[in-house]
Simulated assay, not measured.
Amino acid sequence: MSSLVRDVLGSLREPEFWAYSTWLDIVTKYRRSRLGLVWLLIPPLIYVLGVGYYFAKLQGLSPLEFIPHLGVGYLLFRFLMTIITESSLVLPANSSFILDGHARLTDFVFRVVAKGLFYLSVAAPVLIVALLVSPRLELWGLAISLPALVVLILNAMWMGIAIALLGARFPDIHELMTSVFIFGFILTPILWSASAAPPGTVHGVFMRINPLYHLIELVRAPLLGESLETTTLFYVAGLTIVGLAMTAYLYRRYARFVPLWM
């Protein structure tokens, strides 16, 4: 894993390229708008509170209990979707840097990760308010949810690196990932509860083979005082180990070919 580890550590030691440039991209995008960066807060505000209230009433649930469930699920799903879908285009989009000799490809994937983290941070106040007024919030769950969030980010990073390599070789990967996430949103308990898909049912099986469900549930369940299935713990552990090993192999084997694919 020396090749991947070396580049990841190099990117972490030199965040000027990926962190600062991402911040500049976001600022320049909204600088002509009257509301500016406030626009980043409006979509999660409408979705978490508006859609959360609507679907809570639709299912006969208490909005104060359902909105945090939807809010955590939606924000984490959007974070994963942003990283994976945009990583499929990030290397071709930065081909000028790569062809000019910028060989550390992790810098470009880290730009996407930084963008996802920034959007997640901006939306966090909406979620914090929803959690504070909810009777489901378990403060002890923070001791589990915060390390679980680190595990989720780690998985998002290896997924982003792997998808970036595949996207550089196969341009259709972006369209495939977009379609997969449309289907994945339906299979992930965000607008509905995981209890609606019990083990042993067909829809329960489909939900439990979905990695997005397990990654989101690992963070959300302790925070809302829900018990984690043992399957989720083993699933995430296996996904992390196998995913890192696979990505390390792909990076060591194929990263040097990216300039040729460009």
Rank of each mutant, 00 (worst) to 15 (best):
D172K: 05
I153C: 11
G200L: 02
F206Y: 14
L132A: 14
L146V: 13
V151R: 01
V122M: 06
W140Y: 15
R136W: 08
A148R: 00
I186S: 12
I163F: 10
L127F: 07
V180K: 08
D172H: 04
V126H: 02
V150I: 12
L152I: 02
G141K: 04
N155R: 09
L137Y: 04
V151G: 05
A162W: 05
L131T: 02
N155Y: 08
R169G: 05
F206M: 14
I173S: 03
L154M: 13
H203F: 15
W192P: 05
M159Y: 14
S121P: 10
A194I: 08
G200V: 00
A123N: 01
L154P: 13
L137E: 05
L176C: 05
W158K: 05
V180E: 06
F170C: 11
P171S: 03
P125K: 01
L191Y: 02
G141P: 00
V151I: 10
G141C: 00
G200S: 00
S134D: 05
A130F: 02
V151K: 04
F206L: 14
A164R: 04
S121A: 13
L132I: 07
I163C: 07
A196F: 14
P135Y: 11
M159A: 12
H174M: 11
L139T: 08
I144P: 08
E138M: 13
R169P: 06
L165D: 04
P198M: 06
V150F: 11
V150T: 07
I173R: 04
S134C: 07
M177A: 09
A143Y: 08
V202E: 15
A196M: 13
I186Q: 11
A197I: 04
F206W: 14
P199L: 09
S121D: 10
I144W: 13
I186E: 11
I163P: 02
S145A: 06
V205K: 15
V133C: 12
H203C: 15
G204A: 09
